[in-house]
Nucleic acid binder design. Structure first.
Ligand SMILES: [Mn+2]
Ligand SMILES: [Mn+2]
Ligand SMILES: [Zn+2]
Ligand SMILES: [Zn+2]
Lengths: 142, 142
DNA sequence: CAGTCTAATGAAAATGATTCTCAATGTCAA
DNA sequence: TTGACATTGAGAATCATTTTCATTAGACTG
């Protein structure tokens, strides 16, 4: 993962700096769906000198390198999750507690392609988000 | 549609003002997927005194009243479309020309419910967007 | 009709996430 | 060593949207 990032940087004539490495390591230490600001705060604890501009820049680099996937849920933040390269998944989001469940459904995926083809589209990407209340929040309620 | 809006306002102890009526009429005169700024510009031509704050405020009211649906596609704008109340649909978006096709697929919808149930979720809302290249843009390319 | 109360308006300032600018610093190759 | 760039961090800038606030308009009361 880090190697992939380093390879991308080299290929682009960019350098793997201490700042970039720490930001990348911090990012990979998270489960996913992290905002640049969250990464920034975590990084701050280990290296208070690192600025948020560098954090934002590095998150973008990670995304360009293909090791981070950019997600935009409804809140005003851009979020990133480690891209395991092979796995695609969609999200079930609890609007009460924010808990996110990842899922993948091949039948939905293939129906999407069917629908797109029917309209003459070649799909390059898609976003499927289901919003609702998770079981935990529902039992807590009643 | 306008009546529904007026009813909502009355119920909330708010008034139907000339500004609100013009903004609402302008909004309903569009096909959909309009940003507040676009509405503002159209309204400007008929009533240059109306400010954008009022436009933004009214769009939010229309949304709260249930006659406008708020959509957030990837561009930095909040977009609204008339809510015909009965119709749900998803979107196919051309990343080249911005053309949007609306579609509905019952099989996808029901599979979504199945997936959610499997994870103990009660779904209240969902967002499905397919991004790709429309046929027109594809033929233009090669 | 006044008079009063409150919602509504519009101009301008504020917000907040993200990006940009720029001067200072680091790295590497010749 | 010396350029030539890439990198950094601080702060300014951006940009859609929201908030503030002084002023106006409407509805209601008497
Ligand atoms: Mn995920
Ligand atoms: Mn639509
Ligand atoms: Zn929950
Ligand atoms: Zn197109």
């Amino acid at each position: 993962m880090l190697d992939t990032f380093e390879g991308y940087l080299r290929r682009k004539g960019l350098r793997m700096t201490p700042q970039r490495e720490l930001i990348a390591r911090t990012f990979f230490g998270n489960k996913g769906h992290v905002s640049a600001e969250e990464i920034y705060k975590q990084v701050q604890k280990q290296a208070p000198r690192i600025g948020f501009a560098t954090t934002y820049r590095t998150m973008k680099l990670l995304s360009e390198a293909g090791v981070a996937s950019l997600r935009s849920f409804g809140d005003g933040f851009s979020r990133y999750e480690p891209a395991l390269r092979t796995d695609h998944h969609d999200h079930l989001i609890c609007t009460q507690c924010g808990h996110i469940i990842e899922f993948e459904d091949d039948r939905i995926e293939s129906l999407q392609k069917t629908v797109a083809r029917k309209h003459g589209f070649r799909v390059t990407d898609h976003k499927l988000e289901l919003y609702g209340i998770c079981s935990k929040c529902r039992t807590r309620k009643r």
